[in-house]
């Protein structure tokens, strides 16, 4: 699919992560060709990327505005709990999902208002939200995992290529990418992250842009939460602790500077995929968990270091 215009030979930001994914995949495939190349393995990796990838779509928007959202993991857990709780109380799955997504978007609207209108630091606001939402999830679940009849939601990430979750993820990625690249709102998102004062000067209301960005991103975290529930089949208030860091890592590997003003949806999704490939490759090769953590961490730092070297040229 070529959405790109023939606007010049400039290398896109996601090329680096793409090469990295291909190279790492090739290495693992060479090491364990009998298992790593199986279609089933590809599908498993795709499924395992879904949650981080959907979150990364939202986080990319937030990071482009120069913000950060640390509450992603807690919100995913809260969403699993809300959906499970609704299902347990007899709601049909569509209603349960709709309510959970509405809750997620509402959370985002509150965060967006605090960050936009009240000009509070996103780090602080979402740090607080992280704990508040985690507590809310535990309270709603009465400090238990909520067992529920998933009523078909578990098929969202079924084990074949027709799994709706995969296609929903792809569709959302395209939508968000188009929104950022081709719409007026998308341009305003970049403008607010590049130079908020300049955006204000041009009549753009940064508070409104941020409100929308945080609402949309939290909505996406909610979608990721529904996918998570599809995997877990229980509402788990202790789920996804530290997920936000994986998500931020994916976005950063995808070439977005935390200072804002830049970022790539495709890069972020590839960043998420890269981490899954490493994780899966580690299992296939029988590598102990700690090596996998070291490698993932090193790749994050490396990606940023290379980006720095690239941009730092000629600047001080």
């Amino acid at each position: 699919m070529m959405l790109s215009t023939s606007s010049g030979p400039r290398r896109p930001a996601w090329l680096g992560p793409l090469i990295a994914v291909v190279v790492v995949y090739a290495i693992f495939a060479a090491l364990t060709p009998d298992t790593f190349l199986r279609t089933q393995n590809l599908l498993t990796m795709a499924r395992q990327t879904v949650v981080v990838a959907i979150c990364a779509l939202g986080m990319t928007m937030v990071i482009i505005t120069g913000g950060i959202d640390l509450s992603a993991g807690s919100l995913v857990a809260l969403t699993t709990v809300v959906v499970a709780w609704m299902l347990q109380s007899g709601a049909p799955p569509a209603v349960a999902v709709a309510v959970a997504l509405a809750v997620a978007a509402a959370v985002g609207a509150v965060i967006g208002t605090l960050v936009g209108k009240l000009r509070m630091m996103p780090f602080v606001v979402t740090l607080g939200a992280m704990t508040v939402l985690r507590g809310a999830a535990k309270g709603l679940a009465k400090e238990q995992k909520i067992d529920c009849e998933t009523k078909g939601l578990e098929t969202l990430l079924s084990a074949d290529v027709s799994a709706p979750g995969l296609w929903i993820t792809l569709a959302l990625a395209i939508l968000v990418a188009l929104m950022l690249g081709y719409t007026r709102f998308g341009r305003h998102v970049f403008a607010v992250g590049s130079n908020e004062a300049a955006a204000r000067l041009c009549g753009i209301d940064p508070a409104r842009v941020k409100l929308l960005v945080y609402t949309l991103s939290s909505f996406l975290f909610g979608v990721a939460g529904v996918m998570e529930l599809s995997t877990l089949t229980v509402g788990d208030p202790t789920d996804s602790i530290g997920l936000e860091l994986d998500v931020i890592a994916a976005v950063v590997i995808g070439g977005a500077p935390l200072a804002g003003g830049d970022g790539s949806v495709v890069g972020a999704v590839l960043g998420a995929l890269l981490m899954t490939v490493i994780k899966t490759g580690a299992v296939h090769n029988g590598m102990p968990s700690w090596t996998q953590e070291i490698v993932t961490g090193a790749i994050i730092v490396l990606a940023v270091a290379i980006d720095r070297a690239r941009h730092g040229k000629g600047r001080r």
Partner: peptide, 11 residues
């Protein structure tokens, strides 16, 4: 695959 980074290209 696709160029999704939106803003105008800079050379």
């Amino acid at each position: 695959m696709m160029k999704l980074r939106g803003h105008a290209d800079r050379r």
